[in-house]
Amino acid sequence: HAATELTPEQAAALKPYDRIVITGRFNAIGDAVSAVSRRADEEGAASFYVVDTSEFGNSGNWRVVADVYKA
C-alpha cells in the first residue's frame, strides 16, 4: 500500500519520525508527490507531508522535502 499524503492540519497533529529529500525532474507537482509517496513507502512510512518544493536553477530539476510519519 502506498503512503498517503496528509493535509496541513493532519501533519500538524502528528510528529514526523524522519524527513526525506528527493531531487529529480518532475513535469508537475503531482509527479513529485508520487515520487515522495514511493520513497516514503519504501521507508515503511504510513503517510507523508510535503514541507517544501524548490526548483534548482532553470534546469527543470526539483528538490522536494517531506516529513514522513509511521501511523
Rank of each mutant, 00 (worst) to 15 (best):
L6S: 01
Q10D: 06
Y69P: 01
K15V: 14
L6W: 02
E55K: 10
R38H: 08
T53N: 06
Y17G: 02
E5M: 13
I29S: 06
F26A: 02
A28V: 10
I22Q: 00
T7W: 04
A2G: 14
A66E: 02
E5P: 08
R38L: 09
T53L: 15
I29C: 10
V68C: 05
K70A: 11
N27C: 05
D18A: 15
W62M: 10
N58I: 11
E42F: 10
L14D: 05
A13R: 14
D41T: 15
A71T: 12
S54N: 10
H1E: 06
Y49E: 01
V21Q: 05
N61G: 09
L6I: 05
R63T: 13
A46R: 08
I20S: 00
P8I: 10
D52W: 13
H1D: 06
G24P: 01
F56P: 07
D31E: 13
V36Y: 00
P16A: 07
F56M: 13
D67I: 08
A45D: 02
Y69L: 02
A45L: 05
D52R: 06
H1A: 09
A32N: 01
V50L: 09
L14R: 11
V64F: 02
I20D: 00
R39S: 04
R63I: 14
G60E: 08
A28K: 12
H1R: 11
R19M: 04
E43S: 11
S59Y: 07
S37N: 08
E43A: 14
F56T: 09
A71D: 14
E43W: 13
F48K: 00
D67C: 11
G24I: 10
E42V: 08
D18T: 11
A35N: 03
S47C: 14
V64Y: 02
R19A: 03
N61M: 15
S54C: 15
I22S: 00
L14M: 13
T4E: 09
V33F: 10
P8F: 14
L14T: 06
A71F: 12
N27F: 09
I20H: 00
L6M: 05
V51C: 05
D18Y: 09
F56N: 08
Q10S: 06
D52H: 13
A3W: 04
V36G: 00
S54D: 07
D41G: 15
S47V: 04
A28S: 15
S47M: 13
A46N: 11
A32K: 03
S37Q: 15
V51P: 00
W62A: 03
R19K: 03
E43G: 07
Q10R: 07
D18R: 14
A45R: 02
D18E: 08
Y69F: 11
Y49M: 06
I29H: 10
V65K: 02
G60P: 06
A46S: 12
D67R: 02
N27R: 11
A71S: 12
G24V: 07
E42Q: 12
I22Y: 00
T4L: 12
A3K: 03
N61L: 15
S34I: 13
A46P: 05
R25W: 13
A2M: 12
R39Q: 08
A12W: 06
A71K: 12
L14K: 09
I22N: 00
G60A: 05
A32R: 04
I22V: 13
A71L: 09
I20P: 00
Q10H: 05
D52P: 01
Y69M: 01
D31W: 09
E55C: 12
T53K: 09
K70R: 13
P16R: 04
D52F: 13
S47W: 15
T4S: 09
D31H: 05
R63C: 13
E5C: 13
R39W: 11
S47R: 05
I29P: 10
S37G: 15
N61S: 10
A46L: 10
F48Q: 01
K70D: 09
T7V: 06
I29R: 13
K15S: 10
F48Y: 08
E5H: 10
T7M: 06
G30H: 13
G60V: 04
V51F: 04
E5I: 07
Y69W: 00
V68A: 01
N58D: 14
R38G: 04
A71H: 09
G57A: 08
S47P: 02
D67T: 05
F56R: 05
G60K: 05
L6P: 03
D31P: 03
S59N: 13
A3M: 07
N61P: 04
E42D: 09
A11H: 04
A46V: 12
T23G: 03
Y49G: 01
D31T: 05
K70G: 10
E5S: 08
P8W: 14
V21N: 01
D67K: 03
L6G: 02
R38M: 09
D18Q: 12
L6H: 02
A32L: 12
Y17W: 06
A71E: 14
Y69C: 03
R39P: 00
E43R: 12
G57Q: 08
P8K: 15
I29N: 04
V50P: 02
I29T: 06
Y69R: 00
V51M: 02
V64T: 01
R19P: 00
A3G: 03
